[in-house]
């Protein structure tokens, strides 16, 4: 009789209550599932800034055969959201633009998907052809992006990509005066 009671007591003591550990584990699982962000593959375009004292001191160094693409934003579009602005692509020394970007269609479901509408539609091809022609004539030529501060970053990267495609190794950017930096900080430029 005594040994039966001892057996029952032993059985009761050996039971392990798993409920708290399951609770904690499930909570951990939910936390990790909620905080998980799948790592998206990113790329980078590498460039070197000029190692002189001040960006304006090399302005006159742009030679005739160097490529300089100007990205203009018409004043009438300054009040529009940046991505809706018309961008005019021009080369230094020519009043006739290659063309314009008239629309950037952003997928509302996925902002990473964008379609750029050009007028004329072959504007990127014209820019690319101009770059490759210059590069073929003078392999030592440099490239420069002269973008308005109000120009969306998207178009600058597109031009930069074209320059790399045309095998330019020295690419520089135009600077902005302190007044524009102040306008950026005050919210005048947005």
């Amino acid at each position: 009789m005594g040994s039966k009671k001892a057996d029952e007591l032993m059985k009761e003591e050996s039971k392990l209550d798993m409920t708290p550990i399951i609770d904690v584990t499930f909570n951990l699982l939910i936390f990790f599932m909620c905080t998980l962000k799948f790592k998206t593959l990113e790329g980078k375009l590498v460039s070197y800034l000029p190692t002189d004292r001040g960006l304006s001191s090399k302005q006159e160094d742009v030679m005739k055969e160097d490529v300089e693409i100007i990205l203009k934003v018409p004043k009438s579009d300054w009040a529009k959201p940046a991505i809706e602005r018309t961008i005019e692509f021009q080369r230094n020394g020519s009043a006739t633009p290659f063309g314009r970007c008239v629309k950037v269609a952003v997928d509302p479901q996925d902002p990473k998907k964008t379609t750029i509408v050009y007028d004329p539609p072959n504007t990127p091809d014209l820019i690319k052809k101009y770059m490759t022609d210059v590069r073929a004539r003078s392999p030592e030529s440099k490239a420069k992006i002269n973008a308005y501060a109000r120009c969306p970053h998207l178009h600058v990267v597109n031009i930069l990509n074209m320059m790399i495609e045309a095998e330019f190794t020295e690419i520089s950017y135009s600077g902005i005066p302190n007044t524009l930096v102040k306008d950026l900080q005050s919210g005048e430029i947005k």
Partner: peptide, 29 residues
């Protein structure tokens, strides 16, 4: 320095950062 700029943001910010990485024109050397 890796600059991660949204495609819809104005390029002016990138230009300003480039200058602030090196030398700001107009400031005392």
């Amino acid at each position: 320095v890796l600059i991660r700029c949204d495609q819809a943001q104005v390029f002016g910010w990138v230009q300003a950062i480039m200058q602030y990485c090196t030398f700001v024109p107009g400031n005392k050397q």
